[in-house]
Amino acid sequence: MLTYTIRRTLQAIPLMILISIILFAILHQMPGGPLAPYMQNPHITAADIERLKHNFGLDRPVWVQYLSWLGKYLTGDWGWSTMNSTPVTEAILERLPATLELMGVSFVVSVTLGLIAGILAAVKPYSPVDYFVTTFAFFGFSMPVFWFALMLQMLFSVTGIHFQMFGYAFDFSLPSAGMTSTEGGNFVDRVRHLVLPVITLALIQLATWSRFTRASMQEVLHTDYMRTAAAKGLTFFSILIKHGLKNALMPVVTITALSLPGLFGGAIITESIFAWPGMGRLFITALQQQDFSLLMGYLVLSAFLVVFFNLLADLAYGWLDPRVKYD
């Protein structure tokens, strides 16, 4: 196991280097490169650009530039964000909490609901519940996120839902943009701002979670140990949770590994629609402003997180499932 861990970790390193080379090569095609924002400035002459090029080291061969970038990246110097006028690391760290809040909450919501829906569907296959969960999953997979978000905004923010019942007036209007109101910031206000983006994100994630839990649970339900547990006279609930779910969760490790990078990378579309000040929106603004270093920092970080969490999932498999043998 230890040798496997070491070997897998060592294999991840060339992968990360290859990723960074490809990303560097792609971003290098950006006209002006790191100087792109200066190119449009009428006060900066061609001579200035030449001087800046020399100062930035952009007149060196590409591979030298790459190596110097790599060296700096690994030591925590991710370059200068031209749009924020701060170091890239600072710009990213500033946005990270907002993204963690949004993605964390939607992750917890979709995992909880997804597990429940998946188990219910698996226990009674081809029942109305199963059909409902399956249909819901198909809807989730087929939904254009931005349109779903727009519809939610239309329903809950533009129109709002107002009605009277038992003599009380109910008002289900929800804020459609930002993390807090300008004057607000208390707990209720923050939660109200979270509702719509979380529903948007959870719909998509829920589809994946319920589908996977259902498939994996169904497989487990037909195993011999489940029958043995039932024959021992254990209650259905304890069989389901202790014997069933514990084993069914194994493949679910995979989707967790796939969702976790997004926890840091944020959601580009959802964040831009709901004006959520997170990483995804930072990326889109950086793209519009041609902020080279920020784009590079964001892309490499996202890709590294994917590699990292996949590695973690691989290792977790070996640790959780004694049947998995590594050579």
């Binding site: 792609i26 580009i268 996202s302 590699v307």
Partner: peptide, 14 residues
């Protein structure tokens, strides 16, 4: 390993 949507956006942006 490279998230598809950001990559597509960067390339179309370029």
């Amino acid at each position: 390993s490279i998230p598809l949507l950001p990559l597509l956006l960067v390339i179309t942006g370029i």
